[in-house]
């Protein structure tokens, strides 16, 4: 399995995401700098990590979404490469148009950094296949702009097409319809605010996030 993690100036979860990819797949991902215009050939999986790319200037994820490497990520996504955007990575994916909607400032106005309960809404996706539908899990969140917004038609479509992968069991940031993570139409791009890569080892306190990566990798290996 070939994977890559995109690194923007200000990314700070790129290493954690790379560790998670390697822990479940056994191979190190390529670390790709934001100025690169091409990705390695035949990538199966691309991670867009959390952090504060470009200092959150203009809007969270806005500058990163227009960086050269994101053109290449968009092309790869179109060809069917899996793309996982976490936290700032989710903001980058909405800003780049790979996922609908936008992430607004948390309704409380506060930065939130704690564990949050999540419900698996769609357990059929490549990202959630190792979870049970309706299962409650817990991932850490750490964000200021995680309040998912889209117009009512878009929200209806996301729900109708099973593209809401994860919802907050307890809505911590004001997100529309408790949405914590959404899929693109083809199902190969997932954006989510909570951090599965921070809960993959017993030493992390819990391992709820590990199955997300295991499911992805097993699916990719089965496809190969």
């Amino acid at each position: 399995m070939k994977s890559a993690v995109i690194v923007f100036p200000g990314s700070n979860c790129d290493r954690d995401l790379a560790v998670a990819f390697e822990a479940v797949s056994g191979t190190k991902p390529a670390m790709i700098w934001h100025r690169d215009t091409e990705l390695p050939d035949d990538l199966d999986l691309i991670g867009v990590p959390g952090g504060f790319s470009y200092g959150d200037y203009l809007r969270s994820g806005a500058m990163a979404a227009r960086s050269p490497v994101m053109q290449a990520v968009a092309k790869a996504a179109e060809r069917g490469t899996y793309v996982l955007g976490i936290c700032n990575g989710f903001q980058v994916l909405t800003e780049s148009g790979l996922l609908p909607g936008a992430l607004l400032r948390n309704a409380s106005g506060h930065f939130i950094c704690r564990d949050v309960g999540l419900t698996v809404d769609n357990a059929q996706s490549a990202f959630t296949s190792k979870y049970d539908a309706g299962e409650t899990i817990s991932f850490p969140v750490a964000h200021h702009d995680g309040n998912y917004f889209a117009d009512a038609d878009t929200l209806d479509r996301l729900e109708g097409e099973g593209r809401v992968a994860l919802r907050y069991a307890e809505n911590c940031n004001g997100s529309a319809r408790d949405i914590a993570g959404i899929l693109n139409e083809a199902g190969n791009v997932l954006g989510m605010m909570p951090h599965p890569e921070r809960v993959i080892e017993p030493a992390h306190g819990k391992t709820d996030g590990r199955r997300l990566f295991e499911g992805l990798v097993e699916g990719l290996l089965a496809r190969a």
Partner: peptide, 10 residues
Amino acid sequence: GVLDPQGKAI
């Protein structure tokens, strides 16, 4: 219709 927590804080 888009929530503005910054405006609310101000």
